[in-house]
Amino acid sequence: MIRYILIALVLTIIGLGIYVYSADKLFLFNRLVPKDAGSERIGRDIAFGNAYRQRLDIYAPTGLSSDAALPVIVFIHGGGWRAGDKAGYEFAGRAFSARGFVTVVPNYRLSPTVHFPDFVSDGAAALGWVRTHIAERGGDPDRIILVGHSAGAHIAALLAMDERWLGADRAAVAGWVGMAGPYDFLPLDTPATRGAFGNTVDLDTTQPINFASADDPPALLLHGSEDTTVKPRQSTRLTDRLEAAGVEVRHVVYDGIGHIRIMTALSRWTRSSVASLNDIEAFAREVSAQD
């Protein structure tokens, strides 16, 4: 009987997490799920700009020394460029850190307060902060892996693929991971895309697929087969374009998984049925391996 009660509780929490996420934030889900042991938050609301949303949190393995020089994951949250907050992603930050990465989770400004390219420039500013300061907190500024979910995957893709955003710092991006990301979504046919990109004169500059080139860092593209928010073909198209350009890319589709579950599977209670955390860890370790 206790076993069935626990199963029902887990399913309820997953359902609540999905509801809260769709409403904007993962606060409730994040509060309820247990966090990975061996990890801790070592920085909170650190400014990388002057705006209220230009703040980041840092997670690390427990007891990390300042000279450890571990590879760094920068996780960019989703939310349709108009919602989401780093405060709902402690479970993700600590999951990555428990696997041996210093993990940075930034916020970025949202539409309709701002429009493209401001949220991408915020991502670039956060990465610039990491390059300058993360060594003081045990991270290696020359081994950065960008990870993004949904709209965050779109931002991560542009940072990794469009050399205009990071300049020389792009060389520090060892690889990037897109979880259920939109990369080729013209025309703008949803309220979210029109709100975020409708003021853009040259819409081609908003599409990551247009920037695939031979000098792009390796990519891991993850998607769920049942994603109805961002269709799986988005990752398929970008995979094809990257392969044609000669870029190292891996494409994984999880059968029966939707848009939110691929990301909530980073948590301790729900990761057993989706391998997204293991796949990201394996990729990040490989691309960040020191010579």
Score class of each variant (00 low, 15 high):
L26R: 07
S213Y: 02
L159P: 07
D216E: 13
G178A: 08
N107L: 00
A153G: 12
A98Y: 03
T193C: 08
Q234Y: 06
A156D: 07
I73C: 09
R233N: 10
R3W: 15
E136L: 11
S22H: 15
R109I: 05
N107W: 01
S273P: 05
G43V: 09
D227I: 12
P34K: 02
S65C: 03
D162H: 02
L127W: 11
A156P: 05
P106T: 00
T12G: 10
D240K: 04
H259D: 15
T200V: 10
R261Q: 12
D57F: 04
Y254R: 01
H115K: 10
R99S: 09
F96T: 08
P182H: 02
D169V: 13
A214S: 14
N50L: 15
Q207T: 12
E90P: 03
A172S: 11
Y19M: 15
P112A: 12
I73D: 05
L277V: 15
L242C: 05
A153Q: 05
V120G: 13
L158C: 09
R41W: 12
R82H: 13
V114E: 08
A47M: 12
I262Q: 00
A157R: 02
D227C: 06
R82N: 14
G49F: 13
D189K: 09
P106G: 00
I2C: 11
F27T: 11
I134M: 04
H115T: 14
I209L: 14
I2H: 13
A160K: 00
I13N: 11
A95C: 03
A174I: 08
Q207G: 04
G181W: 01
S213E: 01
G178K: 03
I5M: 06
I18K: 11
S66L: 09
V252D: 11
Q207N: 14
R31K: 14
I260F: 11
L127T: 13
D140L: 06
L221Y: 05
G93H: 01
D122T: 09
N278Q: 08
E243P: 04
P141I: 00
V114F: 12
D162N: 15
W176G: 06
V201R: 10
A289F: 15
H251T: 14
V252Y: 14
A23P: 12
I155N: 02
A284N: 10
I134R: 06
G148S: 01
V105M: 02
D67T: 13
S272K: 03
Y52C: 04
L186Q: 00
L64R: 04
V230N: 11
N50W: 15
G224F: 07
R271E: 11
R82S: 13
W176F: 07
G80S: 01
A180L: 02
A69T: 09
D279F: 10
F96K: 10
L238H: 02
D122C: 14
G138C: 01
D122Q: 10
R44Y: 11
A126K: 07
R170F: 10
R241L: 07
P106F: 01
S121C: 12
H223F: 14
S39Q: 03
I209C: 01
H251Q: 07
S150V: 01
A214T: 10
A196K: 06
R41G: 08
F48V: 06
L110I: 04
I209R: 02
F27K: 05
D169G: 07
G17D: 00
K231W: 12
T264C: 05
P141V: 01
L28H: 10
R109D: 03
N199W: 12
T62P: 09
S288H: 03
Q290F: 10
